[in-house]
Amino acid sequence: MQKVRRVISVIVMNESSVLARVTSLFAGRGYNIDSLTVAPIPGSELSHITIVTKGSNKVIEQIIKQLHKLIPTLKVIEHEEMVEKEMVLIKFPIDENLSDIAALCSAYNGGIVNVGVDMVIAMASDEPVRIRHFIEAAQRYSPCEVVRGGVVAIER
């Protein structure tokens, strides 16, 4: 069966162990997690979890139903039409071509965000596919560390 990529938002009560319930569901039932982000929704007792997963349509349908079934789950949104963004931080040696790096970052809604004695830290935020391209392009400048933030998404 063909696997599809899906972004799923789960709105949950902001209570202890709710994230464990979600992740152990994925682990226990053998579902994939490509990326997972979570943060409280301002001014509420809720948290917003964004999960990127892969699976056949049947599996995706089960994932959504099983997420729904968790008692603290208020809503499960499977995005069809949405805006997805991801952020990445990359550390480069200071002797790389900094103006090239800065130019590259600005093409991906980012820039150099910190300069140390022998490292610079660059940031980009863009669609997940473009973030992948950015990381590929960054390879030219011998990155020492890459930290991706995971996908966040919102319905259009």
Binding site: E61, Q66, H68
Partner: peptide, 8 residues
């Protein structure tokens, strides 16, 4: 009664 059973 459990939607997750349906179509599983």
């Amino acid at each position: 009664i459990d939607p997750a059973n349906i179509g599983k």
